[in-house]
Write a protein that binds this DNA or RNA. Structure first.
Length: 467
RNA sequence: CGGGGCGUAGCUCAGCCUGGUAGAGCACCUGCUUUGGGAGCAGGAAGCCGGAGGUUCGAAUCCUCUCGCCCCGACCA
């Protein structure tokens, strides 16, 4: 227990349970009760937030700002972030990438080798340690992986190799904005492929291309690969993955056939993926700066405009870093040559904002089930009614036992406040139990997305969500 | 990095022009009443008016300088 300090408000989590709740012995395993959950929701919109996802993330108690472009992730938001992260991880693993973790603070020397120390500009946060050595907070990790590679891989027989990490990055943006969508500190999945030659590198590229299609789909998003500038990293094969959302920051032009194209399933990553990639890239899709009406099909003639948010970017950049940094490999003919590399990024923290941009209404967030912080929101409409509370406690225990992630609103609040908070927070299913329904042995099940309500017998609630 | 705006209670904001006891609504605490879509009444706690200098008998208010945050544009997962 923390020592008592006069005048310091002890957060509810550290208090002894309120008398009504103390009947539950599993106090510390049982923290999804809203009465003890750290979920500071806001009725009013904080004035600093302009776009919906930022507003809703603040209002629903997912994040709090620490400084410009730097955020704290509160319990509910952190849960969502971890779910997004986990989907990314699973699809990376499936595509044959291996997870590592590189340092967030890097030595400037590596960047001098690649020549980017001077090129990168003020976006790079530069720091010095106590010995006055130049360090930096990594905005990306090409130099570090290349260094790992050059020290540990010698032979073409060890290729292909694809390493990824999910790590916090820092880019000192001149103007951070849109909350988590364009912060200075952000969580990113970045990976790096190493191959003997361009032909092999293309196969690595294709694997990531397909993995990205699957990753975003699993989050309930429609993400379209588009031709992209190769940017400061350079290279000649590059696509941006852009999520379509009405409030997206940039305008995009897309062949309407892409919008309906099914995502490949049961992919064999050992097979030739080129046909899938060709299928997706043969249709026109580009951001407005790359769209030229005089050269491309016109809007209306199969092309539609939409708004989009960039959530992923993949590049092939050949030997740019391996050449500069001496990451070479011995080939089958006994000749030494720099490896061909590609790098692939997904903005994990940005995705949380992007998902909200793509899925919300006037009342709040509407989480796709795969990334929802909880599947079910259990609403106890009248805590003071012992029968209602007993029924809720019982159902809550059963849902937990069945592995259904449930957020239980057992607060002594008015019905309206509870409904409003559940809608705000965006849990996909609400199970409402009150005195009226209980008389008939039913709970009300509401679908957050459609608003459909249905009366369901108490006994059948668990079965409906389990499995 | 150019241009603009804003810092007053946890949140949204008034007060500043024209200097004179620091305010409202919501949230929070206590009590009573209420209880199926953000309740009512009564009471209470809560602010170094972003910070530093200055002008003045007196500064949230006027002047100077600073720090922070937001917006528009150029740049990025």
């Amino acid at each position: 227990m923390p020592p008592h300090r006069p005048g310091v408000r002890v957060p509810p989590t550290f208090r002894a349970p309120a008398s009504k709740a103390s009947a539950n012995p599993a106090y510390f395993e049982d923290r999804m009760r809203l009465s003890r959950y750290f979920l500071p929701t806001l009725k009013e919109t904080p004035s600093e937030a302009q776009i919906v996802s930022h507003r809703l993330m603040l209002r629903a108690g997912l994040i709090r700002q620490h400084a410009a472009g730097i955020y704290n992730w509160l319990p509910l938001g952190y849960r969502v972030l971890r779910k997004v992260e986990q989907i990314v991880r699973e699809e990376q693993d499936r595509a044959g990438a291996q997870e590592i973790l590189m340092p967030s603070i890097q030595s400037a020397d590596l960047w001098r080798e690649s020549g980017r120390y001077d090129d990168y500009g003020k976006e790079m946060l530069r720091i010095t340690d106590r010995h006055d050595r130049d360090m930096l907070f990594g905005p990306t990790h090409e130099e570090v992986v290349t260094d790992i590679f050059r020290h540990n891989v010698r032979s073409y027989k060890d290729l292909p190799l694809n390493l990824y990490q999910i790590q916090w990055k820092f880019r000192d943006e001149v103007r951070p904005r849109f909350g988590v969508m364009r912060g200075r500190e952000f969580l990113m999945k970045d990976n790096y492929s190493f191959d003997l030659n361009q032909e092999e590198a293309r196969k690595s590229y294709n694997r990531m291309f397909v993995a990205y299609l699957r990753t975003f789909e699993r989050m309930g998003l429609k993400a379209i690969p588009m031709q992209a500038d190769t940017g400061p990293i350079g290279g000649d094969l590059s696509h941006e993955f852009i999520v379509l959302a009405e409030t997206g920051e940039s305008e995009v032009f897309v062949d309407e056939k892409l919008l309906e194209k099914p995502i490949p399933r049961d992919v064999d990553y050992g097979s030739d993926l080129q046909p899938i990639v060709d299928d997706w890239t043969s249709l026109f899709a580009a951001t407005d700066e790359k769209y030229d009406p005089s050269q491309h099909p016109a809007v209306g003639e199969g092309i539609v405009t939409a708004r989009g948010i960039e959530v992923g970017h993949i590049f092939y950049f050949g030997t740019k870093y391996s050449g500069a940094m001496g990451a070479v490999v011995m080939g089958p003919e006994g000749d030494e040559a720099p490896v061909h590399m590609g790098s692939y990024g997904i903005g994990v923290s940005r995705l949380v904002g992007a998902i909200i941009e793509a899925s919300h209404d006037d009342n709040g967030i509407i989480w796709p089930e795969e990334v929802a912080p909880y599947t079910v929101g259990l609403v106890n409409l009248k805590v003071s009614d012992t029968e209602v509370t007993a029924a809720c406690d019982d159902l809550y225990a059963k849902l937990n036992a069945a592995g259904v992630e449930t957020l239980y609103d057992d607060r002594d609040e008015r019905a309206g406040a509870k409904f409003a908070d559940m809608d705000l927070v965006g849990v996909p299913w609400q199970v409402v139990i009150g005195p009226k329904g209980l008389k008939n042995g039913v709970a009300e099940v509401k679908n957050r997305k459609t608003g459909d309500r249905e009366e369901v017998s108490l006994e059948s609630v668990v079965a409906r969500f389990a499995g």
